[in-house]
Simulated scan of single mutants.
Amino acid sequence: MPAASSTPELKDGRRLRSARTRQLIIDAYLALLRERPQIPTAASIAQRAGYSVRSVFERFPDLHALRVAATDEALLRASAQVAAQPTNGTRMQRLEIHVETRGRTCEEWLPLWRALNANQGESPELKARIRVIREMVMRRIEEIYAPELATLTPRERRQTVLAIEALVDFESWARLRGPFELSFEGACAVWIHAIDRLLPKTSADC
């Protein structure tokens, strides 16, 4: 009887350990991506996570599945960061909130974005994640600049949103921080100035 009653607890413990191992492997993959541009190998991921290569492939059928899982993890984290920021305030307050949040997102997730684009190939899963990321960025633009966008025709609104989305792209941030050697604050200032010029003036700005 005691052995039978402990079976569910043993199973729960194994599930929790397996879930923890899986999370540590995902964390290791993301950490390695941030440190160097090369796509991490199974051996390097296992070493960083503190497990064997076998443990990696017990949780993921292949490295592609691991990339998809890591992308989903990043999406959850980035979504939480964005959702925590308000969408109201003066025009300049909203500009500063949007740009600083977007800048920090680009700072943290640029390596993963590049890995996604480099490895999407014929993968419908990765292509779908790239599309979701772009849609999230556009929804954020529409939400935070709703007062300004509401003054435009549908065609003008769409053009403005697309222009801002292109402006705050990962690679745009990488150029400002890399070749142009701007500080975080300096890169934010460039984006704020450009977005402010793209947006129409409203009665509240007069």
Rank of each mutant, 00 (worst) to 15 (best):
58 E>N: 12
52 S>D: 08
70 A>S: 14
40 P>T: 15
177 R>V: 13
155 R>A: 14
196 D>P: 07
150 A>H: 05
184 F>E: 14
130 I>V: 12
48 R>S: 05
187 A>I: 09
55 S>W: 00
206 C>L: 12
107 E>I: 06
148 E>L: 05
16 L>W: 06
140 R>V: 07
122 E>C: 01
91 R>F: 14
11 K>D: 04
193 H>S: 06
157 R>I: 08
19 A>H: 06
205 D>Q: 09
89 G>V: 02
140 R>P: 00
19 A>S: 13
6 S>P: 00
176 L>R: 09
44 S>P: 04
21 T>Q: 15
37 P>Y: 01
105 T>I: 14
41 T>K: 01
131 R>K: 12
196 D>V: 04
199 L>P: 05
187 A>W: 00
122 E>L: 09
84 A>P: 01
133 I>N: 05
75 L>V: 04
116 L>E: 06
31 A>R: 11
90 T>M: 04
131 R>H: 06
25 I>W: 08
190 V>P: 01
39 I>S: 05
159 Q>K: 08
130 I>M: 02
107 E>C: 02
97 I>Q: 11
107 E>G: 05
34 R>Q: 08
12 D>V: 00
7 T>F: 14
179 P>K: 11
6 S>Y: 02
185 E>Y: 00
82 V>P: 01
86 P>L: 10
187 A>S: 15
189 A>Y: 05
84 A>W: 02
1 M>G: 13
8 P>D: 10
78 A>T: 06
121 G>F: 08
26 I>N: 00
71 T>M: 09
83 A>G: 02
103 G>I: 11
129 R>P: 00
192 I>L: 04
61 P>G: 10
33 L>C: 08
2 P>S: 06
41 T>H: 06
36 R>M: 01
103 G>K: 03
91 R>C: 03
112 L>E: 13
187 A>H: 03
197 R>E: 09
195 I>G: 10
102 R>W: 14
182 L>W: 00
8 P>Y: 11
69 A>E: 14
112 L>M: 10
200 P>H: 05
193 H>R: 03
163 A>Y: 00
69 A>L: 07
2 P>A: 03
72 D>E: 14
167 L>P: 09
139 R>D: 12
99 V>T: 15
57 F>E: 11
130 I>C: 12
11 K>L: 15
63 L>Q: 08
133 I>C: 01
176 L>P: 04
84 A>G: 05
46 A>I: 13
106 C>P: 00
161 V>D: 02
35 E>H: 04
173 W>R: 10
176 L>M: 09
72 D>Q: 15
152 L>I: 07
161 V>C: 07
154 P>M: 08
6 S>I: 07
119 N>T: 15
176 L>C: 10
154 P>R: 03
99 V>A: 08
137 V>F: 04
156 E>M: 06
2 P>H: 03
136 M>V: 05
201 K>Y: 11
120 Q>H: 09
88 N>A: 09
62 D>Y: 05
79 S>V: 00
39 I>N: 04
51 Y>F: 13
56 V>M: 08
68 V>Q: 10
112 L>K: 01
200 P>C: 07
44 S>Q: 09
26 I>L: 03
25 I>P: 03
189 A>M: 02
65 A>H: 14
198 L>F: 02
164 I>P: 14
183 S>E: 07
172 S>F: 09
194 A>T: 11
153 T>Y: 04
205 D>E: 15
184 F>P: 11
45 I>R: 03
53 V>I: 12
44 S>C: 01
35 E>F: 00
148 E>M: 00
77 R>C: 02
